[in-house]
Design a binder for these strands. Structure first.
Length: 267
DNA sequence: ATGACCTCCCGTGGAGGA
């Protein structure tokens, strides 16, 4: 089973690219970020025509997240993290699909740093860490996928020294990501490719894609049961080369079939 | 480097992104 995450940078402006990629890659589950559309402007008809059921948490102009399921309707289990009374941004949606809890997230950018936007990013990260702990305690298969806006290590940045004071690479943010992992999550792409330079984003400016001046900021975090089923994973980087494309490329993982149910009395 | 480039909006430039 293939699961993908894709920051589309505007779901309506990107509709042709999104549909083309959905038809080419045909993942079973898709997490989308940066819809940049209010709920009533989500292009559900085109998504449905491509063969996907969807739930979405939109917002006019900014943010917005969605979960798509091929041939079925995702069963929504949450929108927004707990304790978000002070946060108007649409950055989290969650569904039960194919027997797994799938959380789709768009973590704040946080620039400029320092400043209130950076403080907001750190607060949002803390809320995610607290909620992720709750998810693991459920002891069910969970995937947290999306745009985390953090490069976890120097392998994830084309030129680390240029980014040390940026909100995507500051030590506080990398520490928060490590604390999240230490709860028991597996960073899927990094675990499959421990030593490779992997990028999921290339800036529109400075000819970044052609120079391969990229960042790895879109991630899959897997609960232990899902990590045990991880077979493959990669970035559909060629999509970043298409016309009128997003500045992010789709990222995907492939899981083996669910392990067969244990016989009763097996412990 | 107040840069670039791209998205959105009721806009005809500004804000936000990373």
């Amino acid at each position: 089973m293939r699961i993908a995450t894709y920051n589309v940078n505007g779901v309506n402006g990107r509709l042709d690219v999104l549909i083309r990629w959905l038809e080419e890659a045909a993942p079973q589950i898709v997490c989308l970020q940066e819809l940049k559309a209010s709920d009533d402007r989500f292009p559900w008809r085109a998504v449905e025509a491509a063969g996907y059921g969807a739930i979405w948490h939109g917002q006019k102009s900014w943010n917005g997240v969605a979960i798509l399921a091929r041939g079925s309707d995702p069963l929504e289990s949450r929108r927004g993290l707990p304790d978000e009374s002070d946060d108007p941004a649409s950055r989290y949606i969650e569904a039960v699909v194919e027997g797994m809890v799938v959380g789709c997230l768009y973590l704040p950018n946080g620039n400029p740093c320092p400043g209130p936007k950076f403080d907001y990013k750190l607060r949002w990260f803390e809320r995610l860490i607290a909620y992720a702990e709750e998810l693991l305690e459920l002891d069910v298969p969970v995937i947290l996928a999306g745009d985390f806006n953090v490069m976890p290590s120097e392998l994830d940045v084309y030129k680390p020294e240029r980014w040390v004071d940026d909100a995507l690479f500051r030590v506080e943010v990398r520490d928060a990501y490590q604390r999240l992992l230490q709860q028991g999550w597996t960073d899927a792409l990094r675990s499959l490719h421990p030593q490779e330079r992997i990028y999921t984003f290339w800036d529109y400016m400075r000819n970044a894609y052609a120079r391969n001046a990229g960042l790895r900021i879109d991630h899959f975090l897997l609960s232990p049961g899902v990590a045990a089923r991880l077979k493959r994973g990669d970035v559909d980087s060629h999509v970043r080369g298409w016309d009128h494309t997003s500045d992010h490329a789709p990222v995907w993982i492939e899981l083996s079939d669910k392990p067969s149910r244990r016989r009763k009395g097996n412990g």
